[in-house]
Every structure is written in C-alpha cells, then in structure tokens.
Nucleic acid binder design. Structure first.
Lengths: 215, 215
DNA sequence: CTCTGCGAACATACGGTGTATGCTTACAGC
DNA sequence: GCTGTAAGCATACACCGTATGTTCGCAGAG
C-alpha cells in the first residue's frame, strides 16, 4: 500500500477537490492554485490530469450530474414525472454554482454520467404516449422550466428569504401610476415559498401536457 | 460646444461600452482595461462612474432590460402573453451573455428599467383573472420557463445548429442497452427548431393555465 | 485677468489569475 | 541497480481588479 498521505493525483481527485472548493467558497474561488492547495500540490501539477481550467469546470459539471439520484418508479406516471423534476431541482440546489457553469456551456454534455439522467427523463416522458418528436419537445420544455426556475430561485430573483425584496426602499420611490400591477402584487412578490411555486409551475406544464395528449 | 473627440465620461457611456464589448467578444473580454480602451481612457478612470466591476456588470444587465420592446396589445389575451414571452426571449438572445450574469445575480433587480418589463408581464397575467397570489405564481412559472429555455438554447444543450450534437462520436460508444430512449429519440435530439420548440413549451404552459382557470 | 478648488483622468503598484516552459524527482520494467 | 517516462515543481509572463497618490482642466470668485 502506498503511503496514503501522498496519494497520487488523479483526474477524479482533482475534479472532486474543485467541486468541494466551489460548493464551499463559490465559483470565483475555484482557481488552479486554490484547488492545488486543497490537494497539497502546486497549481501546475493539475495540468497533468486536466487539459485546462475549462476542462476542469466541465469535469465539475459532469461530477454533479453523476450525483443525480434516480427516484424509484411508482405506479403513477404523473408522480414519476414530478419526482424526476424534483430530483433535478434538488441536485441543482445542492450545488448552486453549477448553474453559472451550465449557463455558459457551449456544447451539449456527452459524458455517460451526464446522459444517464437525461435517458431517465426521456423514458418517463415517452411513457405518456406522445410521438417521438413530441416527446423530445416535451422533454425540452420541462427541462427548460426546471432549470429556469431553479436559476431564478438561486439567483434570488424571486425575492424570498435570502436578501428579501427591498420593498420599503422601492415602494417609496416607485412612480405609483406606472406600476399598478407591481404594487398590487407586491405582498406576494416579496415572499416566495419556493417549493410550492415550483410545484405550481410543474402542475401547469403537466396539465398542459395531458390536455395536449387528449386532443 | 465641447470637443466631441474628448467627450466626458458618464456612467451611461461606460456601461454602453461594456455592453458593446460583451456582445462582441464575450463576457470574459469585459475587463476594466478593455472597456477603458474602448473609450480611449485608462482603466482607473472608470471608477469615477462605477463603484466596481460588479456594479458595471449590474449596469449591463439593467441596460439590457431597458431595451425590452413592449409588444402592442391585441384583442387576444393568449396572443398577448405569447408576444410578451417572445419579446423576452428575443431580448435574451440578442445579448446571449447576459444569461451568465443573470444566473449569478444574488439579489432581485430594482431599477425602474428592469422593473418595467416585469410590470408589463404582470399586467398580462392578471388579465387572465387569477387571484393575486396565483398571478404571481403563474408569472414566476412562465418566467422560469422562458429563461430556462433560452439558457438551454444559448448554451447549446439542445444540440441544434451551433456545434451539432456529436451523434456519430456518441452513437458508437454508447452502451446501447443502457440508453434505449436516447437512441430511439436521437434523430429528434440532434436537431432542434428553436422557435417551434419554444412555442411548444409556451403552449404547454398556457394550456395548463386555462385548464387551471376553468377548475 | 488671476487664483482657487474640486472632480475627472491618470500612473503606479500589489497581489491575484491561467498557463507556457523547462527542471527535478520518483517509480516501473528490465 | 539502471534507465525511461510521467508526475510534480519552480519560474516567468501577460493580464486581471483595484488601492493609492498625483496631475490636469475647467468653473466660479475676486
């Protein structure tokens, strides 16, 4: 057994360390030097296992995808769909900073680990009995919704707990006559029960889907 | 009249230059030095008009929001909703890199310019006759979908034209028995008519909404 | 007109970043 | 034990955000 204190570097260990740093200190903290330090190694040593920083970031995304927890199937297709959506949301929320990485990706992900959750979701959607083409469309629509919702959730666009919508600052200086809807809805805009809101939008899409199917 | 070649710097001019650089060369190109050069000025001069780089990036987001083009109202609520969604998508696609900025925002936007499109959308949704609380939920659901779809679209997650899904590379090495759905749907996953797909998901949500209303 | 005051623009410097290049070290196979 | 090879390291470069201190140009006062 080799000395465990000086275990060899591997691509996996490098990516894992980078993910750890990102989760703990944010995306900006993920520098080659910082990740190296996390592993007790100089920055340049990482390049023996990772082409460049972009490749490292890609590795992080892949590693996160690999953590997707496949929900158990139930007897209810609707519930399966909901569970899959929830699992995807949970995963994104567990690693909030991957959202930024996803948002400036420039190519589809192709690693098996990244594809497996996709395969899983496609299976569920096909179960609804849509045509192949429409299955793909529904898949993308749901994917878009989930990702977009979580992005807004994480980014704090919905107000909610995090920084709280600065109503008091705003309400005063807002030209009332120009923002009637905003002002009327302010009480509900200020707070946000993320779970409930997520389920609401999910329900919207699912209802639309069954409506489309029964055409 | 002051010499036009040496016009004074303003916050507006700085932000505008930064937006121009971002659109033309990407987000990474937006550095204080680069923006300064765009204006024929040293990097540090920018700090007379912008607190720091984060404030500059916030300014970019705000400037983009201000470009939102409000569609004319029609006699059809559904069509109005669709038009608003399309306008929002168009705006995001015109400045693809703001997506990244939106995704690591940490607070709601509060400038009037940023709020105006929101006010507009809230008005349309309230027109459907939902309760105040439900109007907000629907607003967030739609917003999530649109943003998420465009993010996936821009990021190239859908394959489509940009880098084309590397099917040939993938199809060969895919463990076929583990990815039956993926392989079956591959033809539709490879190509993507973004406009049509966007409309499909939008339709899904709108149908769900009317279904919910007629409960 | 000069003088003054003040904000805008600049110059410099510091500690950080990604990574190209070349060196050193340690281990695998003979 | 010797050697080839790859892993890890040290150095260096260009660029980054920005703190700090200086200089410049113009507005208003006398």
């Amino acid at each position: 057994m080799p000395t465990p204190t000086k275990e060899r570097l591997t691509r996996e260990r490098v990516v894992e360390a980078a993910l750890k740093v990102m989760d703990a200190e944010g995306l900006d903290a993920v520098s080659m030097r910082r990740v190296g330090r996390e592993l007790g190694v100089e920055a340049m040593s990482l390049y023996n296992h990772v082409a460049d920083k972009d490749a490292l970031l890609d590795g992080i995304v892949e590693a996160v995808m690999a953590q997707f927890e496949f929900p158990e199937a139930t007897s209810d297709r609707m519930e399966d769909a909901r569970n899959a959506a929830r699992a995807w949301r949970d995963l994104l929320r567990e690693h909030p900073h991957v959202m930024v990485l996803l948002s400036h990706q420039r190519k589809p992900m192709t690693s098996l680990n990244a594809l497996r959750p996709m395969e899983y979701a496609l299976g569920i959607i096909r179960g609804f009995g849509l045509s192949d083409e429409e299955s793909v469309r529904a898949f993308r629509a749901f994917g878009g919704y989930i990702q977009g919702f979580v992005m807004a959730e994480i980014a704090g666009m919905f107000g909610g707990e995090k920084p709280k919508f600065p109503v008091e600052d705003l309400a005063g200086q807002l030209p009332v006559e120009q923002f009637p809807n905003f002002i009327t809805l302010m009480p509900y805009l200020v707070e946000c029960d993320f779970d409930a809101e997520f389920e609401y939008g999910l329900d919207l899409m699912l209802r639309g889907l069954v409506a489309k199917i029964s055409d």
